[in-house]
């Protein structure tokens, strides 16, 4: 299993692996929003939690269509399916690799972008924490969507259509944690609910995704 993780990380960091694209997108978004909304500091501070969470979510979505598609095209997925590793394990590892290469950098960069958006000082810890807790669910839900659309020629757009509604609960609890922290409220409840969604996704979705992958391979 670790061999698969190491290979995926290696592929991501080598040329053409697409590492950093999501981060760049996230940065551009954080620049474009003030340009669109206007420079008023208090308005920006008010919407910053939502913008940062929506931005992270969209950036995470960007690289999802490659998650299984590349392995599907070059036959690796067939070979992995006949290997001793269960398909559920393959899904979980690939989601983990996606999280490490896409979501983790987003979570770490988010506080910096918070400065650009005048995020209230009380909300930085909550922003980092909620992204760290919530983004694994984004990767896992995304892996499920990628598994559904892996055999399709133009799966990218469909993937967004399928995955974005599934992101709603994660987004709500994630962004609420940050918003409440910005208002100086207690954030235990949204964080706990967010953790619950992540735990549930990690526990159940590998099975659904593996089922979808096996169907797409046959």
């Amino acid at each position: 299993m670790s061999a698969l993780l190491i290979r995926d990380l290696r592929l991501a960091f080598r040329a053409g692996g697409g590492f950093g694209l999501g981060l760049g997108f996230f940065l551009i978004l954080a620049v474009l929003v003030p340009l669109g909304v206007g420079p008023d500091q208090s308005t920006l501070g008010l919407i910053a939690p939502g913008i940062l969470w929506v931005g992270a979510l969209l950036a995470c979505l960007l690289s999802l269509d490659r998650l299984f598609a590349l392995d599907f095209e070059d036959g690796s997925l067939d070979l992995l399916a006949t290997s001793p590793i269960p398909m559920e394990g393959v899904v979980a590892i690939k989601a983990l690799a996606h999280w490490l290469t896409t979501c983790l950098p987003l979570a770490l960069a988010a506080p910096l972008l918070g400065v650009l958006l005048n995020l209230p000082i009380t909300a930085y810890a909550a922003l980092l924490l909620s992204l760290l807790i919530g983004t694994p669910a984004l990767s896992m839900i995304g892996a499920f969507g990628a598994a559904l659309t892996v055999g399709l020629k133009r799966g990218g757009l469909l993937l967004s259509l399928l995955v974005l509604p599934l992101y709603v609960p994660t987004l709500v609890f994630g962004a609420q944690s940050v918003t409440r922290a910005a208002q100086g409220l207690d954030i235990t409840t949204p964080l706990a609910l967010l953790a619950g969604i992540t735990a549930g996704s990690l526990a159940l979705l590998p099975f659904a995704a593996a089922f979808a992958l096996r169907i797409n391979l046959r």
Binding site: I141, P165, L166, V168, V172, I215, N216
Partner: peptide, 28 residues
């Protein structure tokens, strides 16, 4: 048949997330 299988899984997973979204919206 592939379409039937995949949409069925989506419907199952979607149902869970639709219920979660409902509670998320109330919380929100």
């Amino acid at each position: 048949d592939t379409a039937a299988d995949l949409t069925s899984v989506l419907c199952l997973v979607g149902s869970v997330f639709a219920v979660l979204s409902r509670y998320a919206a109330i919380f929100w």
